[in-house]
Simulated scan of single mutants.
Amino acid sequence: MPTVLLVRHGRTTANAQGVLAGRTAGVRLDAAGREQAARTAARLAEVPLAAVVTSPLERCRQTARAVVEHQQRTEGTAPPTLVERGINECDYGQWQGRALSDLAKEPLWSLVQSQPSAVTFPGGESLAAMQSRSVAAVRRHDAIIGEQHGEGAVWAAVAHGDIIKSVLADALGMHLDLFQRIAVGPGSVSIVRYGPHRPEVVAVNTDAGDLSWLRGAAPAGDAPVGGGAGAGAS
Rank of each mutant, 00 (worst) to 15 (best):
T3P: 03
N15Q: 08
N15F: 05
G18S: 12
L20N: 07
T24M: 09
A25I: 04
G26E: 06
G26Y: 01
V27S: 06
L29A: 11
R34Q: 13
Q36I: 01
R39Y: 00
V52Q: 05
V53L: 15
S55E: 09
E58F: 00
Q62M: 12
E69M: 15
G76Y: 11
P79D: 06
P79G: 07
P80E: 11
P80R: 08
L82W: 09
G86F: 05
N88S: 13
G93V: 01
Q94I: 03
A99N: 11
L108Y: 06
Q113K: 13
S114A: 15
A118T: 15
P122Q: 08
G124A: 05
V138Y: 04
H141T: 04
D142M: 02
G152C: 08
A153K: 03
A156D: 04
A156V: 15
D170A: 13
L172S: 07
D177C: 11
F179E: 01
R181S: 15
R181E: 15
P186M: 01
V189R: 00
S190P: 06
I191D: 03
Y194H: 14
A203Q: 11
A203L: 13
T206S: 13
T206I: 06
G209F: 11
G209T: 10
L211C: 06
L211R: 01
S212A: 15
R215I: 04
G216E: 14
A217F: 04
A220I: 01
A220D: 09
A220C: 15
G226D: 09
G226R: 09
G227R: 07
G228D: 10
A233G: 09
S234R: 15
